[in-house]
Design a protein around this nucleic acid. Structure first.
Lengths: 233, 233
DNA sequence: CGAGATCATTTTGTATGCATAATACATTTT
DNA sequence: AAAATGTATTATGCATACAAAATGATCTCG
């Protein structure tokens, strides 16, 4: 049940045994990171020549990676005009969060049924680690723990279709919330919600957990939307 | 709210105004159709040379389309060994349907809130058209109507992220259920379920509609799984 | 001074060439 | 005959070359 995160498909052919790495796969991951971490900002044009120089390859792998990312939704293809990083608008963020909320709710339901005790123990450990970062006011590590918890929850459903979809959509909004400035108040509230979520998971309360997750995601959405407006102004 | 289906992104750069078609985009759609309609069966190796001859292009557009489809999940990349059509197993079908059920449930909920009267009227018209095909025992047209109804339901939520995800996942299982041999009994039952779904939509019953859709999808899953086992034996 | 047209440059899209890894086949060996 | 090894063939992955479209700069004319 507990998959090795190393061997989960993060994209192009990374699922084989001895892992013959392809250049295009390297380029893909590098590009994806650049986009998610905002170094390639929403709306920015992807110039192939520039990317080739930066990544030290020819255009072929770059173009193939861009096509992959286009299907993933992180870039938009403009026929005869190349590609841009998919712009983020309040509307798309809202839409994506609504979807993510439904997916996490489903994940919660399935996790109650399918998670192993070890899965739950691991999430619990991550939860306390997150609490520590919260107590120390360490925002970035907190975010990482937070992300990891949500990911683990989806993973331990054992539904790889769900996991793949979740990851793709999560990537879209992570761009927006990367380093969102949480007020202390909201932060505390988020942590409280996480406590409820963990408790429901431990009790395997398959009625409550989906509701809590959905609500939690809705609140996350509000934070991100605020941050988005703050940036816009 | 009511999007023009023509301009929805079905893939590579089909989202522009006057639509300067790229060869790679043509190849993409053609390949996708070949896979979904089963002409390129699950597990089959995609030989670039063969595809190039068939589609009258060079390898570049074919390779780019394959990368796109890999992200979509319809093909699997094997490093240094090309790509195969993603195999269908009972497990992946089950996983995908569980996910689709959750997505359609969400769509039902959103549709109750957001669908225009015109949207509902159109779905109603399609429903009666479907009933006609059912009465005449016309399976293929029935399936098309059925698909169209489900698609319209998702479309009229106005959530394009949901729509895109739905379409991709739907493509995966459509390969399996393309021309599934329905028993008359099951067929009749499916039609009854659709009647209930339509009624709930008309009443905008946002509590009931998601439940009906989820149940409907579960039954569809059973049909597909049976068909899959029948084919395997 | 500004709008529009013409031309140069850049960039994208497609085709092709070359190197390497994988596969198939034949030969040898046990 | 089966297994193993070596060789030939094929297919893939990456780089590059060429063609067409888009961009932008300059020039002309109102």
């Amino acid at each position: 049940m507990n998959q090795d995160i190393q061997n989960l498909p993060t994209g192009m052919g990374s699922a084989t045994a001895v892992e013959p790495r392809l250049l295009a796969a390297e380029v893909l991951e590098r590009l994806r990171d650049l986009i998610i971490q905002g170094e390639l900002a929403p709306g920015v044009k992807l110039n192939e020549r520039v990317l080739c120089e930066r990544l030290r390859t020819s255009r072929t792998p770059v173009r193939e990676a861009i096509k992959y990312l286009a299907s993933e939704g992180l870039v938009e293809l403009l026929p005869n005009r190349g590609a841009i990083v998919t712009p983020i608008t309040a509307a798309t963020v809202r839409e994506t969060f609504v979807l993510l909320a439904a997916l996490e709710a489903l994940a919660g339901e399935l996790a109650c049924a399918n998670a192993s005790e070890a899965d739950i123990a691991e999430i619990r450990a991550l939860h306390y680690q997150m609490l520590a970062h919260h107590a120390r006011g360490e925002l970035a590590p907190y975010f990482r723990c937070n992300q990891e918890i949500h990911l683990r929850l989806v993973e331990c459903t054992g539904n790889t279709a769900l996991l793949n979809t979740y990851r793709a959509l999560n990537g879209h909004v992570r761009r927006a919330r990367y380093m969102a400035n949480l007020s202390r108040e909201r932060w505390d509230h988020a942590v409280e919600e996480h406590q409820g979520i963990l408790d429901a998971l431990i009790r395997r309360d398959k009625a409550l957990l989906p509701l809590l997750l959905r609500k939690h995601l809705e609140n996350k959405m509000l934070v991100v939307l605020e941050e988005l407006e703050r940036q816009a102004s």
